[in-house]
Amino acid sequence: MLKTAVTFAFICIAVALLLNFFRLVRGPSMPDRILALDTMYINTTALLVLFGVYLNLTVFFEAALLIALMGFVGTVALCKYLLRGDIIE
């Protein structure tokens, strides 16, 4: 039961990541690509948590938290670069 649900969620997240990758490659403008990268980070967080449930291990929690943090910092830095042409003023 749980195994099936985890597999289903894995497939969903994998397809979602492929769609994000499509937008990352295609996306006509820079903000599109930033949005795609941001969503990829969030989906990767979900993938890591799912992997923890699948393997019954809690060690992936820290990695998931760090990826969520890094994704946010990266998005803010890229947007700031587009807005001001500089990251650290």
């Binding site: 099936t4 289903f8 969620a9 997240i13 979602a16 994000n20 937008r23």
Partner: peptide, 18 residues
């Protein structure tokens, strides 16, 4: 299992929208 399926579906819907 219910929360896993709902979560996976919504993540997929968000990416489809994008």
């Amino acid at each position: 299992s219910f929360f896993l399926i709902v979560g996976g579906l919504f993540a997929l819907i968000g990416s489809i929208g994008m």
